[in-house]
Structures are given as C-alpha cells and as structure tokens.
C-alpha cells in the first residue's frame, strides 16, 4: 500500500507489575481499514487501545499513530481519534444532550456548530426524543448508544471501538455495523474494533489480529487466516432422517474425521476432515453404507473455527 500507516507499532510492550498485558506488539494499519482486534478476556485489547491513545505509557517499544507519538503528542493525537471505552462512562446525572454538548466543547467543535452536530449524532442513534432526560433513566443499550454518539461527535479519523455492540439489540447492532462500514468506505476513516463477537469481526473487518496473553498470534484477513491456519475442511451432508444413525456410524468409522454431529432438527450431518483429499473417500463410504445423499457441501471455515483452532494450537505450544 502506498499510504503511510495510520497505526504503526514496534515492539510495543506494557507490564503491570508481573503481568505482561501487551507483549512485543508489531502492527501496521492503513487508512480506511477496519481492523478486528480479537482475544480472550484479559488478552490485552483495552491496554493496547490505551497505549495507542497516549493515556498509558508503554514499558518499552514505540508506537506511531496518525504520524504522532502517543506518549509525547497525546493531546494533539486525541483531537483526531475517537474512543468508545468498554464501559459506556456517560455521566448519569446529566442529560443525553448535556453529555454530548460538553464533549463537543472538549473536542473543540466550534461553539456555533455544537447544537447542530449534537442533534445530528442524537438522530443517528435515535436518541433525539430522550435527549432531555437524565442518563440515569436510560437503558443499558441507550447508554451504549450515547457513548457511541460521543465517540464520533468530532468526526475522528481513527475510531477505537472497545466492544461496541455489547448490550445492543439486533436492530441497533446492525445499525452500528452499517455505520462502521460507511465510515470505512470513504477510505479516510480507520476503525480499530475490539470485539468478542467473531461473527461481527468476520462481517466487518478487512483484517483481524488475534491476541493471546498480550502477544499477537495471528494477523490477516479472515480468508488469509483460513488459508494459513485452517488445514482441514468442513463438510455438510444432507440425507434422510431414517439414514442418520447409519450415516453417523459410517462417518465416525473413517479415520481422521472429527466433530461428526447432526444439525439440530435437520437430516443434515456436519463433520471436519483434515484434508480435502478425503472427500471422495467419505462419499464412497456413505454409498457403501447405503446412505442416500441429497447434498454434500464443503463449508468455508468461520472466523470462529479459526479462532478456536488458533487457541488450540497455542495451548499445545510450550510457553
């Protein structure tokens, strides 16, 4: 890519006493990308967001964000980034409008533009009707929406979202997804998305990084990761309800088939193979067992498959 990276880290590391929260992180993120930042609880996602915004200093290593050094130009940098923190951290005693108007001032939106900009983001998140109510009267999801509205009020070039859709209903979740896509589409906005929701990451992210105990164990597009990390393949076999027991018996008998399970309530069995070469063997085996085959489909691994495979690999690796 020709553009300079929006985020560039070299050996970024942060310790908390004897815990290594972020360990030797090397990242390059380009303008317009949506990067999914995945990892178990405590993997170091939130700590990374803090380091990249200059609100926490690294123990070692360095970072460059929007061409600035977060640890020395933090204030200048934060003018151009927006952060949705993991707890909404909206002011319960203030109204929704007041929450936004105050942050508009803190982000130095021209006084004359504050009112219209606040109205605009309230509208995006459908909070206009409740703008005059105290936030203590909001539901959890409404607080989350307000926090999202606040994170984008100054139209940041780089948006950090720490679990944006946790607690949101499906309708709003979809709106947030649309928003993220629209933001990244123009090529000027970059989104750093920390999430536990793998389907969300798969749907939205150009690339994902997987973090484990502070270390990045994988980085790439979901397709790349699938190619590199997912050696096997998943198959789906449709047969009849009567033939299910025979089919399961025949399939489990084949060496190297795994996770042979019936899809709940359907005459469909799914299974994992280590190699694509085994597919013809599976077919002849089923035919030999007298199992009628209506459909046999190879399935793309989901990010979820990859994620679990990745963590399996790392469990086996000596520390």
């Amino acid at each position: 890519m020709i553009n300079a990276p929006v985020i560039l880290t070299e050996g970024l590391t942060r310790h908390f006493d004897d815990i290594i929260a972020v360990d030797d992180l090397n990242l390059e993120i380009y303008p317009g990308e949506v990067l999914g930042f995945l990892g178990h609880n405590g993997a170091g996602k939130t700590t990374t967001v803090r380091l990249l915004n200059g609100v926490l200093t690294p123990t070692s290593g360095k970072a460059q964000v929007l061409g600035l050094d977060p640890s020395t130009d933090g204030a200048e940098l934060r003018r151009r980034t927006g952060v949705l923190t993991e707890t909404p951290s909206v002011d319960e005693r203030l109204t929704g409008y007041e929450n936004l108007a105050i942050f508009a001032a803190l982000f130095n939106i021209p006084p004359a533009a504050v009112e219209s900009r606040v109205a605009e983001v309230l509208e995006i998140f459908q909070l206009t009707d409740r703008a005059g109510d105290r936030v203590s009267e909001y539901s959890k999801g409404m607080k989350q929406k307000l926090a999202l509205a606040r994170a984008i009020i100054h139209q940041p070039e780089l948006l950090f979202l720490d679990e944006p859709t946790s607690g949101l209903d499906p309708v709003i979740t979809r709106q947030v997804h649309t928003l993220i896509r629209e933001l990244s589409r123009d090529g000027n906005h970059t989104v750093f998305l920390c999430t536990h929701n793998l389907a969300e990451a798969q749907r939205l992210c150009d690339r994902v990084a997987v973090l484990e105990n502070g270390r990045m164990v994988a980085l790439g597009s979901p397709a790349e990761l699938a190619r590199d990390l997912w050696k096997g393949m998943r198959l789906e076999v449709e047969t009849t309800t009567e033939a299910i027991p025979a089919a399961i018996k025949a399939l489990t008998a084949i060496p190297d088939t795994r996770e042979v399970v019936q899809e709940q309530g359907h005459p469909v069995i799914s299974l994992s193979l280590n190699l694509r070469d085994q597919v013809p063997g599976v077919v002849s085996c089923l035919v030999a067992a007298g199992v009628p085959i209506f459909r046999l489909t190879p399935k793309e691994p989901t990010l979820e498959d990859i994620y679990f495979a990745l963590h399996e690999n790392h469990k086996e690796m000596p520390a």
Partner: peptide
C-alpha cells in the same frame, strides 16, 4: 467510582 473519568481521559485536554 462512576467510571466517567475514562471518557474525559480520552479527550484532547492535557
């Protein structure tokens, strides 16, 4: 306690 400081921390204020 109210966890509202974190949002302020991410603003461009020094």
């Amino acid at each position: 306690e109210r966890k509202t400081l974190e949002a302020l921390i991410y603003t461009p204020t020094t």
